[in-house]
Design a protein around this nucleic acid. Structure first.
Lengths: 192, 192
DNA sequence: GACCGTAACACTAACCGTTAGGGTTTTGAA
DNA sequence: TTCAAAACCCTAACGGTTAGTGTTACGGTC
């Protein structure tokens, strides 16, 4: 019941980090498909089973740093300034996320992801989970049931905005363009 | 250059059908995860390699009958009556597709899909491909470039409508509800 | 300070989807 | 009849993933 304090936690975190760093380095050096799980484990000096106790799948090694995504969206809804409108708050958050992942220093990882169908699919299904989480956060904020169709719809649209903008030629403009459409959709829903 | 006529085609189609039927039967009887590819191949009396020459992956065995989906969406855009509006045409098509997959006789297969994360992910990424195809069809119909953000946005929204409605308590109502929002989004896009 | 429960890790051996390589039969056409 | 290609089969492997079974290192307790 007492959370393990100190050394044990640190060692665990260090192991996890070492695995993730090693994996990303090898993937970038030699390509995702040409690096096996056994290679990563050997290079990080851990057992294969240890690797899988830290990460649920090979693909997850690439999305290590992507943790903030989901949490950021939920916070954008739940912790926004009192009186601030929902959709603009989400627009701002998506702007930030898109800037983050289209930044020049993120380009190698982006192109790694794009180079592998497995990674693209994995990202896709992460996004879907994010959409569900966001839908729940929106429903909670508005005090409507989680199954509310407009909530779930808006959540999906927002995630779509992110995905579309990341692939667009002008990501910032694309966010604004999609959000103009989302705002209109929101206005005619029975939640606005 | 000459298309293979007659017997060969029929035999091939029969083999494919036998594999798909056998697979679906076994999956429904014993569960998706408890039936291996080798089981399906043995029961259908074909080699494993033959199975994979007909289907790209295990998951594809379940979505055999789902072929019309993509084509139907494209036709709804391209072959609609002259003067008919785009969004209403899509709304009608999605209504039909949703009815199809929420029909009572489709329930066992739906619940099979819902029972397996692998199948849910596979369906998800099929839908994404459908969204891309639909975006291209819409772009062609309107005479704008395929990369047009509003096109791609509307296509995604339409696919979202399908997914959301399939999971809603009242699928028909959900389609109408989401399409009211899509219509509003469409009206403020620079394509309307 | 010795002691114990448990979390983290290791090792082995397998399972399962998928593919490569290489051979045999069937089919349609010359 | 003969031939090329298509469809199929078999074997063996590869690579991600997991189960089973220890082993070590830490944290709290007596």
């Amino acid at each position: 019941m007492i959370e393990p304090s100190g050394r044990r936690e640190r060692k665990k975190a260090a192991t996890r980090q070492k695995i993730a760093d090693t994996a990303l380095r090898l993937f970038l050096e030699r390509g995702y498909d040409d690096v096996g799980i056994r290679d990563v484990a050997a290079e990080a000096d851990v057992a294969v089973t240890t690797l899988f106790s830290h990460f649920p799948a090979k693909e997850a090694l690439v999305f290590e740093r992507d943790q903030g995504f989901e949490h950021g969206l939920v916070r954008a809804v739940a912790d926004r300034a009192p009186g601030e409108q929902l959709i603009p708050a989400l627009r701002q958050e998506i702007h930030a996320l898109v800037r983050h992942c289209t930044a020049p220093e993120a380009a190698p990882v982006r192109s790694l992801i794009m180079s592998s169908p497995a990674l693209r699919e994995y990202e896709q299904s992460m996004r879907m989970r994010h959409a569900d989480t966001l839908a729940a956060a929106i429903a909670a904020d508005l005090g409507v049931p989680e199954t509310s169709t407009p909530c779930r719809t808006i959540a999906r649209f927002v995630i779509d905005a992110y995905a579309l903008a990341c692939e667009a030629a002008e990501p910032g403009d694309a966010v604004d363009e999609v959000f103009r459409m989302i705002e209109a959709a929101w206005d005619v829903s029975r939640l606005a």
